[in-house]
Design a protein around this nucleic acid. Structure first.
Lengths: 147, 147
DNA sequence: GCCAATTGAATTTTTTACAACTAAATTGCC
DNA sequence: GGCAATTTAGTTGTAAAAAATTCAATTGGC
């Protein structure tokens, strides 16, 4: 039997694969809910940060979201076009782009409450299991070698 | 304090967000290793299935990988161009496309052994923790409402 | 036997990831 | 103190992936 040697190349022995699939599948379940707000998942988590902080530059936003500026630029432009935020250069340091939430952006928050409630039925874990998962995921993130 | 009402819209209370980030970040760590094989992550997991099964149609492949044919078609064409597989129509039902691994595809498997070994240092979990995570992820997948 | 509904895959479009580039600010050497 | 080199911030362009749409073949009901 050839088995042993190649065990580590079997899908069922991968930890990344179910992570990848779970992430994708959950985001797919978000879609119909987010469609009602005309937001993509990335736009949604960006708004989450702005609902809490109201004013940040692209760098800070990127480090909250684990997104680089190349990914964020088109996302922020879309959200600006929808009127949910304003982009402007910092006076002190022209390299800095300050993102500020607008009133319209703030209003969206109330409507967005229906998203987490609509998602409640998607992840069938007990509170303890969810807590364990949460802890393990952040343990991976914290322990990951940089780049 | 406004806090309570919007707790569920804070990034730190999301389970999907760390899943999404973990998946993305781990796949990013795969990249330099997969570059040496000239494979993307999606191409890599596709090859994993073919190393085990050698011959499948697009539908079967998609259900192993949780990918639809719209995503698979370009992936399979790329892999065919590289000479790792062959795509051909089934005689019985012309709609079925049969994917068969080639000798060159089979040979790639040995070279690919360096990928899991190179990834070993990325996920810093004990075997027990990894096992718990694995179980929880598949529990989510199994429990997820369809579409 | 014919038409509607379903299934399977390909194509097209949108979104995301990544690399290369540009511009601004800072550092450091003379 | 002024200029070159480096660092930092963001944009642009390109490639990959995901989602939506389209098209073709088959099945099932009448």
């Amino acid at each position: 039997m050839e088995g042993q040697e190649f065990e580590c190349l079997k899908l069922k022995n991968q930890i990344c694969f179910p992570l990848y699939v779970c992430s994708k599948e959950i985001i797919r379940r978000y879609k119909p809910l987010l469609d009602r707000l005309d937001l993509t998942y990335t736009q949604y988590i960006t708004m989450m940060v702005l609902w809490e902080h109201t004013r940040m530059n692209v760098k800070e936003l990127g480090s909250c979201l684990y997104l680089d500026s190349g990914t964020l630029t088109p996302v922020l432009k879309k959200l600006e076009n929808k009127g949910y935020l304003k982009r402007s250069r910092s006076r002190e340091d022209e390299r800095n782009l300050i993102v500020t939430i607008t009133d319209k952006g703030r209003e969206l928050r109330t409507q967005a409450l229906e998203v987490p409630s609509g998602m409640a039925c998607v992840v069938h874990l007990s509170p303890e299991e969810a807590d364990t998962l949460y802890t393990l995921l952040y343990k991976i993130l914290d322990g990951m070698p940089s780049v």
